[in-house]
Design a protein around this nucleic acid. Sequence first.
DNA 1: AACCATTTTGCAACTCGTTGCATAATGTGA
DNA 2: TCACATTATGCAACGAGTTGCAAAATGGTT
Lengths: 188, 188
Amino acid sequence: MSLPHAILTALLEKPSSGLELTRRFDRSIGYFWSATHQQIYRELGKLEKTGLIRALPSDVPSRGMRKEYEVLPQGRSELERWVDEAEEPRPTRDPLPLRLRAAGVVGLGGLMAEMHRHRGLHAARLEEYRSIERRDTERRRGTDRERVQRLVLRAGIDLESFWVTWLDEAIGELEGLRGVARGTGLES
Amino acid sequence: MSLPHAILTALLEKPSSGLELTRRFDRSIGYFWSATHQQIYRELGKLEKTGLIRALPSDVPSRGMRKEYEVLPQGRSELERWVDEAEEPRPTRDPLPLRLRAAGVVGLGGLMAEMHRHRGLHAARLEEYRSIERRDTERRRGTDRERVQRLVLRAGIDLESFWVTWLDEAIGELEGLRGVARGTGLES
DNA sequence: AACCATTTTGCAACTCGTTGCATAATGTGA
DNA sequence: TCACATTATGCAACGAGTTGCAAAATGGTT
C-alpha cells in the first residue's frame, strides 16, 4: 500500500489538483513510484472519503472542474505511521533479464536490438537525472528536506547507472558468442 | 505479461510440476520475476487450456496429485515471439526511497532502523548470489545457455550491490543531519 | 454563436498479484 | 491403524495497476 502514501507525501509538500499530481508523479515522485491519472483520481476519492485529505473549500464539486486537495491531520498521522512501519523489500520484477534467460533457450531473435534500445533509454534517463542533480547542487544551500530528496534522486541515478553498466556488459558478452541470430546457436 | 513466459522458459529448461516451479521461482528465476504458487497454478491452467503446454500423460488428473507439464510447439513459438517483441522498461516501484522522501516531510521516526534492516537483507542476498556465482564459475566450462544465465545472475548481483551501496550512503548522510528522531528537525 | 482543441475529472472493465483458506495424497511415528 | 506433518493442488475474495473511453469546463478561432 504505497500509492496513498505517495500521494499524501506529495500533497504535504504542496497541495495540488489531480492533474498536477499526475504530472509530479511523472517527474520526481515517479523515480520510485509511478501512477496513472486514473489511479490517482480513484485514490484521491478514497482518501477524501476516509478523511485523510480534503478538497479546498473554494472549489465547486462538479465534473471537469479543477479541485485542489490538502492533507488533514489524520492523513499526516497515517503517513507517519507508514514511515515507521516494517515492510519487506519488494521482489524486483523486470522482464528484460527474463527475456534474456528465455533467449538462452529459444535463441536471441531480435533481443539484441531490444537491449541496445533499453540501454539508450536508461542512458537518457540517467543523463536527465544527472542534470537535475547538477542544477540542484548549484542553486541550493540545502535544507534537510532537500538533502533527503537529493538522496532519493541519487538512488535514481545509481539505479539507472546499474542498468547502463549491466546492459553494456551483457551486450558485449553476447556479441562474443557464436550464435547471435535465432537458429544458429543459443537454442542448442 | 511476463509470468506465462517465465513459466514457459522454466518448463523448457526442465519439465516440472507446479510446486517444483514454485521452488524454482524462489531461486534463480525469481531474481527478476517472483510468483506465488497460486499465481503459478492459475497460469498453468490457462496455458494448458490454450494449448501452449500439456500435462505429461502419465499423470491422473485429480486434486492433490502431482502433475508434470511440458511445453508444446505452440508454446515455444509464443516464447520466441515474446523475446522478439518491443517492450518498454517497467517503471521502478520500491517503497523504501518513497518512505525516505515522506520522512523528509514528517520526520524520520523509525526509518533509520528500517534502512539498516534492509541494508542487511540486501547484503545477505548479495552474498548468496555471489556464492552461487563462485560455484558456477568453478564447475562449468560454460555452454551458451549457462553463460546467458550467468549474465542474469550478474544483474542480480549488481542490483543488490546498488542497494547496499546506496543504503550505506543514505544512512551515513542521514546520521550527519541535525534531527534524527521525529520532532527534532526533519519536518521543519 | 458554432466549432474545436485542451484541460481536468471521472467511470468501467480488465488483468495481474496477494492472502487466506480448503482439500487430497503421501509418508512417518506411536 | 490412527494421528499428524508434509507435499501438492486448488478456490475465492480482494487489492493494485492498466486501458479505453466519456464528459464537463475552458479558451480560442472563425
